[in-house]
Nucleic acid binder design. Structure first.
Lengths: 204, 204
DNA sequence: GGTATACGTGCAAGTTATTGCATATGGATC
DNA sequence: GATCCATATGCAATAACTTGCACGTATACC
């Protein structure tokens, strides 16, 4: 006799009800971004564009909503800061509770990454009529990956030139950055392979 | 005077209102899966596990709901098929309208891929207390990527041993598969780099 | 007879994310 | 002085996705 019987679909179920933090990771990404510096929603949205957001994208509305929720849960505190020449801002910071929750979260199961790339879905629809369009799209993709790689490399050279000498947390950030770089390099390589193949199709 | 003025957030806005197909790609993924064979929801959910779903994951509920929606929009047709020894099933197929919509979609702008990987977010939280846990997680991730690569390679050897001789659409599918393979290989390599680094932190 | 497993479809309720506004200050540009 | 842009926050509606469950049939194993 078994203690538990899961249906086929219940694989993800029943993980954690012992803290306020649920499986989904936007809140953790935001809290993570606040580990070292307090920030306003606007600043967060901006820093997301060049840091954590590279691995977990979020719109400004999402961020504002999440900040509100997190401060209601006492995981963040907020204070209004008057500024001259600019509208006032609301600056959020991690509470002790927030820090603890974040640390706990690290020890929980992560989900496997969910790849969603409509370019790949499009490739399933390849035919003589759209080969040249697919080439154009791939070139565009290649270009934007390139841009991103430049950004990564700039960050790397600037802040992570000598990773081994960094404090531990920074080494973790470096590894994430490295993940982004490797991923970009791989994608670039694949683009080239794919473009080569498509070119040979296109020219019969 | 300008014809259009977008706010900062409106980048994605205003794309297409000339067909029933909206930017989001689950519907297209489903239609794509139905290009060559008609399938029931159940069969689709299964084929997703070993094919397109590798690039665009969806739960069975999502698939059933989407099928319903698509057949209401006349992009799919449905018929009930009686089976002996099994419950009846509802088999869906692309309508002419659906095929056209799908072909149009291929020519529309794709969004850049949105990477979401909480392992990378976790790495931002690296500290002396969780290094060994991160190592465990990375090893687990490595293992599951490995599994996936085995699957990919099996598919590749079985169906795409000689890609150049395949019909065009199949070559597209092959390129998507190759994307998955290259991505897995890269991830594996990064895992090893990261594990090495973490090991050196762990042993001081 | 009981229990598990594969097949098959679907509802209801919830959370998360997107899209399109709304509002307001101040500096720069035309 | 009008419009644009960066700063700053937010609501409301909808779309996408998850979670948990309900309903059924048939086979196989113990």
């Amino acid at each position: 006799m078994q203690a538990f019987a899961y249906k086929k679909e219940s694989v993800y179920a029943n993980q954690d009800h012992f803290t306020g933090i649920e499986p989904m990771a936007l809140s953790q990404a935001i809290m993570t971004a606040l580990i070292e510096d307090d920030m306003s929603g606007y600043e967060l949205a901006q820093s997301f564009d060049s840091s954590l957001g590279l691995f977990w994208r979020a719109s400004h509305q999402q961020i504002y909503q999440e900040l509100k929720k997190l401060s209601e849960q006492e995981l963040l505190n907020k204070r209004e800061v008057s500024q001259t020449g600019k509208p006032n801002k609301i600056v959020y910071g991690l509470t002790l509770l927030g820090r603890e929750a974040l640390q706990e979260w690290v020890f929980k199961e992560s989900k496997v990454q969910e790849a969603k790339d409509d370019l790949l879905v499009k490739l399933y629809n390849l035919d003589a009529g759209n080969v040249s369009h697919m080439i154009t799209e791939l070139e565009g993709r290649r270009e934007s990956i390139m841009q991103r790689l430049y950004l990564y490399e700039r960050i790397r050279r600037r802040h992570y030139a000598d990773p081994d000498s960094l404090p531990i947390r920074r080494q973790g950030v470096y590894l994430a950055l490295l993940g982004g770089i490797r991923n970009g390099e791989q994608y670039l390589g694949w683009c080239d392979e794919a473009l080569k193949q498509l070119a040979s199709i296109d020219s019969h």
